[in-house]
Every structure is written in structure tokens, then in C-alpha cells.
């Protein structure tokens, strides 16, 4: 699934990475605890999170995750957006709650990390 499709399905606002909308997202991960993200997420996945702080971006950076989407209408700070831009992470935000965001992507065919084989 491309970032562009995700933006459409979740009706996202694109905060950074406007030029990366054609890149492919391989799996989904919905999580607010960063250690779990670090332990399980696969490179190339999208991180859906309600954790609106810089550590969400750091976590994506460390685990080679190129797309982060804040759920439930979280508006990140300018610093956070700058951090995402600096690390070439595509940052999205959707007004949907986590359940609906995961549900819509899953029913549109995006797999979870445990189903995704590299």
C-alpha cells in the first residue's frame, strides 16, 4: 500500500514528506509504547500512534520506519515536525481514533508486522 493510499483511506493531513507519497508501506503497527515498537516493528512499516512526543519520531528513526501517523487528531509541535523532517520521516495525522485507523488499513489489505514476511 502506498503512503498516498493511506492518506486517502485515513483522510490524513500530510505534515512532512510530501514528496514521498508514492513510497510503499509494507505493514502496519499501532502502538503507544516505544519499546514494543522497537522490538517488533519491521523496517518499512507505518507506525500509528497516539504518543505525541519526540520519542515517537526517534523510535521511527532508530527502527528504520519511514512513516508515522498520529491518530485522534493529535497536532504535533513544531519541534517534532522539524525532527521528522530532519530524519526524512513522513509525518501524517488523522482525526480517526487508533481502532478505526488500524481497522480501515487492515480491511483495505495492509498486513500487521507478524503477518509480514521480508
Amino acid at each position: 500500500m502506498t503512503v498516498k493510499e493511506i492518506v486517502k483511506i485515513l483522510d490524513c493531513r500530510v505534515l512532512t514528506g510530501e514528496r514521498n507519497l508514492d513510497s510503499e508501506v509494507k505493514a502496519g503497527c499501532g502502538c503507544d509504547l516505544m519499546s514494543d515498537v522497537l522490538a517488533f516493528i519491521k523496517p518499512g512499516a507505518i507506525l500509528l500512534t497516539g504518543l505525541n512526543n519526540p520519542q515517537a519520531i526517534r523510535t521511527a528513526e532508530m527502527s528504520d520506519v519511514g512513516v508515522v501517523c498520529f491518530v485522534r487528531g493529535k497536532q504535533p509541535s513544531e519541534e517534532l515536525i522539524a525532527l521528522a523532517r530532519e530524519n526524512e520521516i513522513t509525518l501524517l495525522t488523522t482525526s480517526l481514533p487508533m481502532f478505526d485507523a488500524c481497522g480501515k488499513l487492515y480491511t483495505n489489505g495492509l498486513v500487521g508486522w507478524s503477518e509480514y514476511k521480508e
Binding site: S35, D36, Q55
Partner: peptide
């Protein structure tokens, strides 16, 4: 803050 779940 998203940490301290004992997975570190």
C-alpha cells in the same frame, strides 16, 4: 510518555 513497560 511511552516508556517504562519493562521491555528495555
Amino acid at each position: 510518555l511511552g516508556f517504562g513497560a519493562g521491555m528495555g
